[in-house]
Design a protein around this nucleic acid. Structure first.
Lengths: 195, 195
DNA sequence: TGATATTGTCAGTAAGTACTGACACCCTGA
DNA sequence: TCAGGGTGTCAGTACTTACTGACAATATCA
């Protein structure tokens, strides 16, 4: 985790995200953030003016925008099992990139009003996408007739749950790893939804 | 939410759980907790001695022990769909009773070391139970051969995800309600696992 | 009524914390 | 060599907050 090559601002942003995601906004002092960044507290305030501004800047810096819309529009092969795997891989990739940001918006919703919505944009998009995909697959006769939105939601939730579970403490459920879980869940849902 | 009939200690414990689950341990002052309980701050300290002790007492008070082991051991009918519904209902009931406690142990793991494990005892138990159930069902020829643990985990995770999603802000995913979700998810998993 | 326990009030302490100002230092580039 | 931008140091301010002590008020109950 050597960040000495980064500029002062970036080091502060990194440190802020790291510490706040662990201990919460009110659980970390500006001094601790500055120290973690290898910088004096004064410098922190010279750059960001206020603790809150620092968090907001950090949030903006590390929150990946909704850039995946068409990202896997081409990758689809209209085979249920393969496509579900693509979707859930994309989901876990996105969530893991935003890992700490998600954690912060969970812990400190109160301090960052309005920011939680941004964090939940990705999952919402994916849900919408998956729903449309199910509709289309139904029309092609490659999927059973069900409520496509609820089916998509159930699939998403199982991966959201696994993600959060992993976020929180790693190993509550011993002997369970992400990759086998993804494959098994995809297999199950594919079997459930194939005519 | 009239709690005037309760004793002083209990009112304080209620107020603590309420406020801390919303704003986090460091986001609430002892004065605010006392005020919410309709009691002077001094009384708070007379009863609990320290803020941390108050939280610990509150946690103990509102954390339901693992009392369900055999609770639905008799309710099972060895029909996949019906039993899955029983399991996930039990799950959501337990989680919802512990709602605020779960939220606190998510936000303030740092302040309550060791307590998170306790919160995750119920899900762990249910997972173990469900795994054994799947094994038994497999032996009876009423279920396909799969990794029973991963299948159980996938089912649990979809409900854990739904629970957390509901916890956090209520309605990220508009138009989705718990009851229809439970039924649809049970239907899906039953279809996936029936021979 | 009187004894005891519980609570409120109020003033106060000690520590922590976000944030500032003044000044000296160092590095870079002209 | 000089100027300027970014930084560290240090002292300090204003505010919050967990927690305490002393005393008065009230409720409970024998």
């Amino acid at each position: 985790m050597d960040q000495s090559h980064l500029g002062t601002s970036d080091r502060l942003l990194f440190a802020a995200i790291d510490l706040i995601s662990e201990r919460g906004y009110n659980g970390v002092t500006t001094q601790q953030i500055a120290e973690a960044a290898g910088v004096s507290e004064k410098t922190l305030f010279r750059h960001f003016g206020a603790k809150q501004k620092l968090l907001e800047a950090a949030f903006d810096r590390f929150h990946y925008g909704p850039e995946m819309k068409k990202l896997f529009g081409e990758r689809l092969v209209w085979e249920l099992e393969a496509d579900l795997l693509t979707v859930c891989r994309t989901y876990h990739e996105t969530m893991n990139r935003n890992r700490k940001v998600v954690q912060i918006s969970q812990k400190d919703e109160v301090i960052l009003p309005g920011y939680k919505e941004r964090t939940h944009q990705h999952p919402l998009q994916l849900l919408e996408f998956l729903t449309n995909y199910f509709v289309e697959m139904g029309e092609r006769g490659k999927m059973i007739r069900t409520d496509p939105k609820l089916a998509a939601f159930t699939f998403m939730m199982s991966h959201f749950g696994a993600f959060i579970n992993d976020l929180e403490a790693g190993n509550h459920y011993p002997g369970i790893r992400l990759e086998p879980f993804m494959q098994e869940s995809v297999r199950l849902f594919a079997r459930a939804l194939t005519p």
